[in-house]
Amino acid sequence: MITLAHMLCLSAILFSIGIYGVLARKSLIAILMSVELMFNAANINLVAFNRFLYPDSLWGQGLVLLVITVAAAEAVVGLALVIAIYRNTKNLNADDLHLLHD
């Protein structure tokens, strides 16, 4: 039997993996992917709460659809930035990209 707690644990694990990825991975692509993981952790929360607490309504699912749309748009912008950075520097290592610093 799957309960709300199971879903929340899954979400928390996904979110933690996402945070780890953002903080520890050096490739910009990997960082973007980790951000997507965190989005989806939040989405699971929304859907799970809706399913277990208000099974008759669909507000959570609706909101998730909105989040997915916005995340897609955001990914487009993020990837475009990554491509622009790569064209300029031939490098996607986050540690080497500190132009704003000195």
Binding site: V22, L23, A94, L97, H98, H101, D102
Partner: peptide
């Protein structure tokens, strides 16, 4: 202390 590396700063924020 002032690495310029965004992930160091993010770590502190987190």
């Amino acid at each position: 202390e002032r690495s310029g590396r965004i992930q160091n700063y993010l770590m502190i924020v987190t």
